[in-house]
């Protein structure tokens, strides 16, 4: 996942804090070991090395992950596609012709996942898994489950500042309030979250001093191009995983896919920031 993680639990003494923090770190490390593509010995890396042309066995946890990916791929009509690794790796070759050829050869449509046999096979050499836009939400679910199991009734959890969960209520009462600026700290969207998560995807093209403009990082299979618009999508959901997956999917979706997503996920709330203004919808 390669990102930052912060957990704030109010009213916790040092000893309990260290204990819970240690266990959460273990969960993070365990899940990273399964899902990251940046470690050669992760399960994901092994699949990417071995699954072209032959079915390879996967762990129970990976099987659950792949099952969830399959569901999201179907329910977003492919706007969420975790099998575009070759496209991501060739990020800088953005000519349409190249993208088109790679998208045809890559993608979840070329993944043969058999949940009962717990095997996965890639039908093309270009197919490979990348769980960006999924992993943070998946792990957030695990951590929320762990904290609830420990009867912790209030916590604020941030994954890379883009996937955020408010567990329970603010210790002073009421929901956790998150302030998501539209531009340079102005025109914020204030989101109240109680036992909910939000996830923000997309690009805010603000050039800060000594920083380069952000680089497009979401690829749209439907549009066969990197999303370079000055646009952010925020999804609010009781499920951190849904929030994470749908914010990415909505950023990548074409109009047809967007309509389908809004229809399929009626319990989620969608916000979009364009031209430095937030509005409902995607």
């Amino acid at each position: 996942m390669g990102t930052r993680f912060n957990l704030v639990i109010p009213g916790m003494d040092d000893r309990d804090g260290k204990s819970y923090g240690g266990k959460v770190s273990e969960i993070l490390a365990e899940q990273e070991g399964i899902m990251t593509r940046f470690q050669e010995n992760s399960e994901l890396s092994a699949i990417n090395r071995d699954a072209f042309g032959k079915a390879v066995g996967v762990s129970q946890e990976m099987s659950r992950i792949l099952g969830a990916c399959d569901l999201f791929w179907r329910d977003t009509l492919g706007a969420f596609d975790p099998a575009l690794l070759s496209v991501i790796k060739k990020k800088h070759e953005t000519a349409d012709e190249n993208n088109s050829r790679q998208v045809t050869a890559a993608g979840w449509k070329n993944v043969k996942f058999r949940p009962h046999a717990r095997t996965i096979q890639f039908l093309t050499g270009e197919t490979g898994l990348d769980l960006g836009g999924f992993g943070k939400g998946w792990v957030m679910e695990k951590i929320v489950g762990y904290l609830k199991g420990k009867n912790i009734d209030a916590a604020f959890i941030s994954f890379g500042e883009s996937t955020i969960c408010g567990l329970g209520s603010h210790p002073l009462g009421g929901p956790w309030q998150v302030n998501v600026p539209a531009k340079n700290g102005q025109n914020p969207l204030v989101v109240n979250i109680t036992d909910e998560a939000i996830s923000v995807s997309g690009l805010k093209l603000i050039k800060r001093e000594n920083e380069k403009l952000p680089v497009p990082h979401i690829f749209s299979p439907a549009r066969e191009q990197w999303i370079a618009e000055d646009k952010m999508v925020l999804v609010q959901s009781a499920s951190p995983l849904k929030a994470e997956v749908l914010s990415t999917a909505c950023s990548a979706a074409d109009d047809h896919q967007k309509m389908h997503i809004l229809d399929a996920f009626k319990e989620e709330r969608f916000y979009v920031c364009e031209k430095d203004e937030w509005r409902n919808g995607i």
Partner: peptide, 21 residues
């Protein structure tokens, strides 16, 4: 939290170098 202030957390932002090692 330390000062017992109910504030808004200015944190959400566009994806933060997502999934880059």
């Amino acid at each position: 939290l330390e000062q017992n202030v109910l504030g808004k957390v200015p944190i959400g932002s566009s994806s933060w170098d997502p999934e880059i090692a």
